[in-house]
Deep mutational scan, measured.
Amino acid sequence: HRQALGERLYPRVQAMQPAFASKITGMLLELSPAQLLLLLASEDSLRARVDEAMELII
């Protein structure tokens, strides 16, 4: 289940942060499945989480 969510998330994360897409997707997969579904449904929520992840990385 998580694998399938990751496969759906990755291209969207890659479009926002290509250099760190794998790392960010891995970080996002730590969230609950319900939270992941919310990110897939909301571009704004996904962008906010990706921005948060980038702050942790750099």
Rank of each mutant, 00 (worst) to 15 (best):
H1I: 15
H1T: 15
H1L: 10
H1A: 13
H1F: 03
H1Y: 02
R2D: 15
R2P: 13
R2N: 15
R2Y: 04
Q3W: 03
Q3G: 09
Q3V: 11
Q3E: 14
A4W: 06
A4F: 05
A4T: 12
A4C: 08
A4H: 06
A4Q: 14
L5K: 02
L5R: 02
L5I: 13
L5Q: 03
L5V: 09
G6W: 15
G6T: 10
G6M: 15
G6L: 15
E7V: 08
E7I: 07
E7C: 09
E7L: 04
R8H: 10
R8T: 11
R8K: 13
R8P: 03
R8M: 13
R8D: 09
R8V: 15
L9E: 01
L9C: 03
L9H: 02
Y10Q: 04
Y10T: 03
Y10E: 04
Y10K: 05
Y10A: 06
Y10M: 07
P11V: 13
P11R: 12
P11G: 09
P11F: 09
P11Y: 10
P11S: 11
R12Y: 12
V13D: 01
V13A: 02
V13Y: 01
Q14I: 12
Q14R: 14
Q14V: 13
Q14W: 06
Q14M: 07
A15M: 09
A15P: 04
M16D: 02
M16H: 06
M16C: 04
M16T: 04
M16K: 03
Q17L: 07
Q17D: 03
Q17M: 13
Q17P: 01
Q17K: 08
P18K: 03
P18I: 04
P18D: 04
P18W: 03
P18T: 02
P18E: 05
P18H: 04
A19L: 09
A19G: 12
A19D: 13
A19E: 15
A19R: 10
F20C: 05
F20N: 06
F20M: 08
F20L: 11
F20E: 06
A21Q: 01
A21M: 00
A21S: 04
A21D: 01
S22G: 10
S22K: 12
S22D: 11
S22A: 11
S22W: 10
K23H: 08
K23V: 15
K23M: 11
K23N: 05
K23D: 07
K23T: 12
I24E: 00
I24F: 01
I24V: 06
I24L: 05
I24G: 00
T25F: 09
T25Y: 09
T25L: 13
T25D: 00
G26F: 10
G26Y: 10
G26R: 11
G26P: 07
G26Q: 15
M27W: 06
M27T: 03
M27L: 09
M27Y: 05
M27S: 02
M27V: 05
L28D: 00
L28G: 00
L28S: 03
L28K: 04
L28F: 04
L29K: 03
L29V: 06
L29E: 03
L29N: 02
E30D: 09
E30C: 07
E30M: 07
E30P: 02
L31P: 00
L31S: 05
L31A: 06
L31M: 10
L31T: 04
S32P: 13
S32V: 06
S32K: 07
P33S: 14
P33A: 13
P33N: 14
P33H: 14
A34Y: 10
A34H: 11
A34T: 13
A34S: 08
Q35M: 12
Q35P: 02
Q35L: 09
Q35F: 09
Q35W: 05
L36E: 01
L36I: 13
L36D: 01
L36G: 02
L37I: 13
L37D: 14
L37H: 10
L37E: 15
L37Y: 10
L37G: 10
L37V: 11
L38H: 13
L38Y: 08
L38T: 10
L38M: 13
L39E: 03
L39A: 09
L39V: 11
L39F: 04
L39T: 05
L40M: 09
L40N: 01
L40Q: 02
L40W: 03
A41Q: 11
A41S: 12
A41H: 11
A41Y: 07
S42E: 09
S42M: 05
S42D: 13
S42H: 11
S42I: 04
S42G: 05
E43Y: 07
E43W: 07
E43F: 05
E43S: 07
D44P: 06
D44W: 02
D44E: 13
D44L: 04
S45M: 14
S45W: 06
S45T: 08
S45I: 13
S45G: 09
S45E: 12
L46A: 00
L46M: 04
L46Q: 00
L46K: 00
L46I: 04
R47L: 05
R47P: 01
R47A: 07
R47I: 06
A48N: 09
A48F: 09
R49E: 06
R49F: 15
V50A: 02
V50S: 01
V50Y: 00
V50W: 01
V50F: 01
V50G: 00
D51L: 12
D51A: 14
D51Q: 14
D51M: 12
D51H: 09
E52Q: 12
E52K: 11
E52H: 10
E52W: 12
E52P: 00
E52Y: 08
E52M: 12
E52D: 08
E52F: 07
A53M: 12
A53Q: 06
A53W: 05
A53C: 10
A53P: 01
A53H: 05
A53G: 02
M54H: 07
M54A: 08
E55G: 11
E55Y: 10
E55P: 01
E55F: 08
E55L: 12
E55V: 14
E55S: 13
E55Q: 15
E55R: 14
L56S: 11
L56I: 10
I57H: 02
I57F: 04
I57Y: 03
I57K: 00
I57P: 01
I57L: 12
I58E: 09
I58N: 14
I58A: 12
I58C: 06
